[in-house]
Design a binder for these strands. Structure first.
Length: 348
DNA sequence: AAACCGGGGTT
DNA sequence: AACCCAGGTTT
């Protein structure tokens, strides 16, 4: 690529940002690293539109990192409910507690310390460093990859190691060293509002005259995409034990989907057989299950919900279930599929 | 390096 | 149905 284009890129972008960029978001321009961190964690792999109300709710409920650190964890997960990638929520809690107890509730102010926080990778560390502390670290998110890939017709893929390094190095070359926060915000805003994945608005783009993909009419070829793998099928058989007043749940653990969220007693199997069931249940006694499916990015969940009313809970002892009053399930955090089940079972 | 982790909007 | 979103951690 030409050096002239490298220097033109940033000045054209910053001029567009000053004169035309009217994108507004609740966290834009804020300097409080806690709030910036919160917004960035929420926005990981999440569209701005989807994350906004969660951000507003979290900041209103927990105005400071110490209030988040001292919050009831189930309440925090409950607020995160529906956002997905629940590891983000647990890491957020871990980091809030860490900063509150180990760092006098003071958010770290250098890149390496920020990067060391749980749930913070290179993108998020660069975002916090530049937005809160005006440090010159270039963000590389999906927007940046797309803009740079098109403007410089990068045939490197961000989804292999060398391509990733090349794109990060280019991004770092281009950043405005005096106003890194504004620059990072501007390139992401451009990607989100002009240089969109589909049907980019090239006629409004400040870079249209130096955009190599545009000049060679090959915008659709950039950026290089990641190959998609087929969905993994997950058949979940849920035994919904309940008495008139109580329902029985389990908290998911391990490194699997929905960690730390609650579901019903779950047996993952293609075909539910007698020996997979607890001793006191007979396959013939099971009613026809309610079947609900949910498509996720990487797997297809099919939930088979078997309602199992009980007179007493004595037979459940060995299953280590959590008993919850039916009137209190609104205090518990569930994945979407379980919420869908509740919506289909008002009589529970 | 590759696998894994949700949910949803847009086209 | 495909694409992809202000990515990060674990194996």
């Amino acid at each position: 690529m030409k050096n002239a284009d490298l220097s033109a890129f940033s000045s054209l972008l910053m001029a567009w940002n000053r004169n035309f960029n009217r994108r507004a978001m609740p966290w834009k321009g804020i300097k409080d690293p806690y709030k910036i961190w919160m917004s960035e964690i929420i926005l990981q792999q999440t569209r701005v539109d989807q994350g906004e109300k969660y951000y507003t709710d979290f900041i209103a409920s927990y105005p400071t990192i110490s209030q988040l650190a001292n919050a009831n964890e189930e309440d925090v997960f409950r607020k995160w409910q529906g956002l997905g990638y629940y590891n983000r929520c647990r890491n957020m809690i871990v980091t809030a507690k860490f900063i509150h107890t180990e760092n006098d509730a003071i958010f770290p102010d250098d890149y390496d310390s920020i990067l060391a926080l749980k749930g913070v990778g290179e993108y998020t560390a660069a975002a916090i460093s530049s937005f809160a502390f005006n440090l010159p670290y270039a963000v590389v998110d999906g927007n940046v990859v797309r803009v740079l890939s098109r403007v410089f017709s990068l045939h490197a893929s961000y989804f292999d190691a060398t391509g990733k390094k090349a794109i990060q190095a280019l991004a770092q070359t281009l950043i405005d060293k005096k106003e890194p926060g504004k620059y990072n915000q501007a390139i992401m805003d451009l990607g989100a509002t002009i240089c969109k994945p589909q049907q980019p608005d090239c006629s409004s783009c400040p870079l249209t005259l130096i955009c190599q993909a545009r000049l060679t009419d090959s915008i659709a070829s950039f950026p290089i995409k990641k190959e998609r793998k087929p969905l993994k099928e997950r058949p979940f058989h849920f035994l919904v034990f309940h008495t008139t007043s109580t329902i029985y749940l389990t908290k998911r653990s391990g490194n699997d989907i929905w960690k730390d969220l609650h579901t019903f007693y779950c047996i993952e199997t293609e075909k539910l057989t007698q020996k997979l069931l607890p001793d006191f249940i007979n396959t013939r006694e099971l009613n026809k299950p309610l079947v609900l499916t949910q498509i996720l990015s990487h797997q297809k969940i099919t939930g088979y919900f078997y309602l199992i009313p009980l007179q007493t809970a004595t037979s459940l002892k060995s299953l280590n279930l959590i008993s919850v009053k039916k009137t209190a399930i609104n205090k518990i955090a569930f994945p979407k599929l379980i919420l869908s089940f509740f919506e289909n079972n008002q009589y529970l």
